[in-house]
């Protein structure tokens, strides 16, 4: 009963959020962000704990895997573009990963974060299933890592496009790549709405950056800890 309630709640809030996003386009109406806030609020108000929500969550996220796999379709359609800009993609993704991890750790050191809080920052831009796997290898706190990853995804989805406008990055390939590298799947979901090229590149960048990150983290961590 609670599971059915949770699913109906999530689906209807999502549709409401899409409607709001279409009507009032702003970072605050980014569907993942606003839906999450509303759903948490309603669950708390109706006395449903996250443990009770988990069965519904498992049913609803069943298709996340196949949905991620579906990204192969826009990647395939834009394969010539990828072949053309392969060098640019590898350079852009690597620079994005290194600058975001380094800046995060340096700022965290200024705030004197404890080691688990700092360590988890290294995987904050990696898609959830990979981030938790890397987390186990580096002995990080898994739920903290998941929280960082989700919040980072929301930040990228909410502000990514606006930031890129600000510095006049208008090439669809560069825009998709940047959002996918930093804001993984949540950013990709937003990039898909901006255009097919952006969505395809974001999805590919998410995958490539996950692989690159898992290779460079073992070398990056000893530099800071």
């Amino acid at each position: 009963m609670i599971t059915l309630y949770s699913i109906l709640l999530t689906v209807s809030v999502y549709h409401l959020a899409r409607f709001l996003a279409a009507k009032y386009s702003s970072p605050l109406t980014s569907p993942v962000f606003i839906s999450t806030i509303i759903i948490i609020f309603i669950l708390v108000a109706s006395n449903v704990s996250f443990d009770e929500y988990i069965p519904a969550k498992n049913i609803m996220t069943y298709l996340l895997g196949p949905a991620t796999v579906a990204l192969a379709v826009p990647i395939y359609k834009n394969r010539l573009l990828f072949a053309k800009y392969f060098g640019a993609a590898i350079i852009g993704i690597s620079i994005g990963i290194v600058t975001t991890i380094t800046s995060a750790i340096l700022i965290a050191k200024c705030f004197q974060f404890s080691k688990p809080f700092t360590l988890a920052l290294t995987v904050k831009s990696v898609t959830v299933p990979v981030a938790t796997e890397i987390g186990k290898i580096i002995h990080g706190n898994i739920s903290l890592i998941a929280a960082y990853v989700i919040i980072t995804g929301m930040i990228g989805a909410m502000f990514g496009a606006k930031l890129l406008n600000l510095i006049k990055v208008d090439h669809p390939f560069a825009r998709g790549l940047s959002i996918g590298t930093i804001a993984h799947g949540i950013g990709t979901a937003e990039a898909v709405k901006e255009g097919e090229v952006q969505g395809a590149v974001a999805g590919a960048a998410m995958g490539i950056s996950a692989v690159i990150t898992s290779f460079i983290i073992p070398y990056l961590i000893p530099l800071f800890f």
Binding site: T10, V11, V13, Y14, P31, V32, S35, T36, I39, I40, L43, V44, F50, Y53, A56, K57, M60, T61, L63, L64, A67, T68, V128, S143, L144, A146, A147, I150, I151, G153, M154, A157, G185, I186, T188, A189, E190, V192
Partner: peptide
Amino acid sequence: LGFFFIPISVGLMTL
């Protein structure tokens, strides 16, 4: 695609 991240994000309530 965005929908599937919402149930995971709701997990933030435990933190």
